[in-house]
Every structure is written in C-alpha cells, then in structure tokens.
C-alpha cells in the first residue's frame, strides 16, 4: 500500500494553515517532515497534528514552545491512558 504524503504547498492547502506557520511548526519540532529532493514531504498523520497545533495556538493563545509542550504532554497522556485501559482489562480477565 503506497503511503499518502504531501508537499509543503499541498499540505498547507489541505490543513488550511499558511506556509509561514507550517515552517514555524517545523522549526519548533512540532512537525517533522522528511526530505525528498531537498523538499519537505509530510505524512498524512501530520495533518491532524498540524491542525491541533494551530487550534491550540489560537484558542489557548499559546506561543510555539507552549504548543509543542502541550502537544507532547497530551499525546503522552493519551498513550498512558490507553496503556492503563489495556492493563486494567487484562487484570480483569486474569481475575475472572
């Protein structure tokens, strides 16, 4: 299955975020595109991350360091929650 990727221009148009903002997100490590022939290539997963970052920036009036930190913490939190769910279900099955 071929992976869906975007160039910077495609990415900006689909994410509805301008190029300068995307560039800033990359500079702050919020988005991590790969390089292909000296051009940024964004995986499709980056779309929702970019939109989430932009919403957080606007709605919560965060600077980009804050956005990067908030994203990282919420993602870590979500992973931990999933893991807790898994372990709780497993314990339940072992007990009954």
């Amino acid at each position: 299955m071929s992976e869906l990727v975007y160039t910077l221009i495609e990415f900006c148009s689909v994410a509805k975020v301008d190029e300068q903002r995307v560039t800033e997100f990359v500079e702050h490590g919020i988005l991590e595109p790969r390089l292909r022939q000296d051009q940024w290539i964004f995986p499709s997963e980056a779309l929702s991350r970019c939109q989430r970052a932009e919403r957080m920036r606007q709605d919560l009036q965060l600077d980009l360091h804050g956005v990067a930190l908030a994203l990282e913490l919420t993602e870590r939190n979500q992973k931990l929650r999933q893991r807790i769910d898994y372990l709780e279900q497993l314990i339940d099955r072992l007990r009954h």
Binding site: R52, R55, M56, D59, L60, A70, T74, N77, R81
Partner: peptide, 21 residues
Amino acid sequence: KKLARKYHPDVSEEADATAKF
C-alpha cells in the same frame, strides 16, 4: 483562559468538552 484550557477539545478528557468549549 482557565476554562478554555480545561475544556479545549484537543486537551480535555471531559466527555462533552467540545460543547463546553
């Protein structure tokens, strides 16, 4: 600002966060 942080759908774990936000 306090409530926005609490209910922001990208951050909050509350069930009806979107509506509250």
